[in-house]
């Protein structure tokens, strides 16, 4: 599903040039559950952003489902992302002005799905994430665990093939963290490919494979 070859990302400011990713080559098969680990600043989130088509690499190749996507324009990346990739962030990134239902509904609106079908899908996913009773609440009215469940609901509502999770348990206590990881594992069992950036060995333990990054390079991969 994902093949990268010599993926490099360099951030340039007026004075400094920082290599966030240095020739990363990585393959992820469909249905796989991969954890990316490494110290802060090693390039985990940058890798995830590129894999999620939120950003372009400076050089190298990225083939997603057989298509070269390394140098797509923002407009084309948006089209590619839609319905294919779901995101879960450490800081949830819910829109404060929208309630739970509306936050989850967002990707479906952008897919131009009919209202009736949207309603069914959102309600189903909220039930599944055990958050249906909070549908009318706004993000600030929810606990961190609940917010992350909403974020996961939003990530999966469009049935994406790939979910990218950037430290999904980073802002949660252990009870809520385990719940979130269980949800992701469940989704993986149903066939969704998951790539998760984490600092937590416990969370990484649920993955099929752990990729370790250091200074923008893959230093080792542990297949379980």
């Amino acid at each position: 599903m994902i093949k990268t070859n010599d993926l490099t990302k360099i951030f340039r400011t007026e004075e400094v040039e920082t290599t966030a990713l240095n020739k990363v080559t990585l393959n992820v098969k469909e249905g796989e559950y991969v954890a990316v680990m490494g110290p802060s600043g090693c390039g985990k989130s940058t890798l995830l952003n590129i894999l999620g088509l939120l950003d372009n690499p400076t050089s190298g190749s990225y083939i997603f489902n057989g298509t070269e996507v390394a140098n797509l324009k923002e407009r084309d990346r948006t089209i590619f992302r839609k319905g294919n990739i779901g995101f879960v962030f450490q800081s949830f990134n819910l829109i404060d002005e929208l309630n739970v239902y509306e936050n989850v509904e967002l990707p479906l609106i952008y897919l131009k799905m009919k209202t009736s079908e949207r309603k069914k899908r959102v309600e189903d996913v909220l039930e599944r994430m055990k958050i249906g009773h909070r549908a009318k609440h706004f993000p600030q009215q929810l606990s961190g665990g609940q917010q992350q469940r909403v974020a996961i609901a939003r990530a999966v509502v469009a049935n994406p093939k790939l979910i990218l999770a950037d430290e999904p348990t980073g802002n949660l206590d252990s009870k809520n963290g385990i719940e979130v990881i269980n949800l992701l594992t469940e989704l993986n069992k149903e066939g969704t490919t998951i790539i998760m950036v984490t600092h937590s060995d416990r969370d990484a333990g649920y993955a099929h494979r752990i990729v370790n990054l250091f200074d923008g390079q893959v230093v080792n991969e542990n297949q379980k």
């Binding site: 999620g52 939120l54 407009r75 948006t78 089209i79 992302r81 839609k82 319905g83 995101f87 990134n93 819910l94 829109i95 404060d96 002005e97 967002l106 990707p107 952008y110 897919l111 939003r154 469009a158």
Partner: peptide, 11 residues
């Protein structure tokens, strides 16, 4: 907010 919307498909 714009960023989030874009991540989830807004053009």
């Amino acid at each position: 907010e714009i960023g989030i919307r874009k991540v989830f498909g807004a053009n």
